[in-house]
Simulated scan of single mutants.
Amino acid sequence: MRLGAADAAELRVAVAANFHPLFEHLAVEFERQSGVEVRIASGASGALFTQIVHGAPYDLFLSADATRPQRLEQMGLTVPGSRTTYAIGVLAFWDRQLPASELRLRQWHGRLAIANPRLAPYGAAAESVLRRLGMTERLKGKLLRGNSVSQAYQFIDSGNVPGGLVALSLLKARGVPPAQYWPVPTSWYDSLEQQGVILKRTREPEAARALMTFLLQQERRLAQAGYALPGAVAQR
């Protein structure tokens, strides 16, 4: 898989906040195997999407949803046929004070951290869960919305908020004790189908394709990190 010295490349990858911790490790392995340098920019998928639309010089976009890569494709900003599902995200309820459970979430009355649903797919999923459980009115004025799911995680980790709805992958990456979190049933929110796409402005299409292929070979690592596997999910 190693590219020749004459083909040595640098890739700029825009990575959704939930995938950043795992991707950092995977990028190091890819660099070692391929000789390609990987530079990472991480943030909420919505913010990264806006940067791309306005010309940010990324080669690949690893989103936390399928919608934004699909929109970029419709705008003619992607390499045709490159849009691929690389993981299925899982939302989890994190309670720093008591063992987390469905009952604990249903009875929650305090402040709760979630990602901004306008920017982050995990925030939209969290909002859907709260609506499903009839908690929206009860928590009015008590929701602390982070610009990304990573910031929502930080609100809880810092002790500023006692609990929240965040990415399971972040909890696993940071070593949060399993008793403190409860994976929310995936039927409670729209699928967090995470898609990647190669951007048409890339000057390194071969290296970009190699990185996407490498990611799709990491099923075991993805499962260990708290993701469901794409499996038979069809590309939309």
Rank of each mutant, 00 (worst) to 15 (best):
D65A: 05
A66M: 09
R68I: 04
Q70A: 15
E73P: 00
M75L: 15
G76L: 03
L77P: 05
V79F: 06
V79I: 14
V79E: 15
P80V: 01
S82P: 11
T84L: 06
T85Y: 07
Y86S: 01
Y86F: 15
A87E: 01
G89D: 13
G89H: 05
V90D: 01
L91W: 08
D95Y: 08
D95S: 15
S101T: 12
R104S: 06
Q107L: 14
H109D: 14
A113R: 06
A115S: 14
P117H: 06
R118F: 11
A120Y: 04
G123C: 09
G123Y: 12
G123R: 10
A124T: 08
A124Y: 12
A125G: 15
A126I: 09
R131F: 15
M135Y: 07
M135G: 02
M135W: 07
R138I: 11
R138H: 07
L139H: 13
L139S: 08
G141D: 13
G141M: 12
K142M: 12
K142I: 04
K142F: 14
K142W: 12
K142R: 15
L143I: 15
G146D: 02
N147F: 11
N147T: 14
V149E: 11
A152W: 10
A152E: 02
Q154G: 02
F155P: 01
I156R: 07
G159F: 06
G159N: 04
N160G: 14
N160W: 13
N160P: 00
V161D: 00
P162G: 03
P162K: 03
G163S: 14
G164Y: 00
V166P: 00
A167W: 12
L168E: 15
S169I: 10
L170Y: 04
L171D: 01
A173Q: 05
G175V: 08
G175A: 06
A179D: 14
W182A: 01
V184W: 08
P185M: 07
P185C: 02
S187T: 14
W188D: 14
Y189W: 07
D190E: 15
D190V: 03
S191M: 09
L192A: 08
L192Q: 12
E193D: 13
E193V: 12
Q195G: 00
Q195I: 00
I198N: 05
R201D: 09
T202D: 10
R203N: 13
E204R: 12
P205L: 05
P205N: 04
A207H: 05
A207D: 10
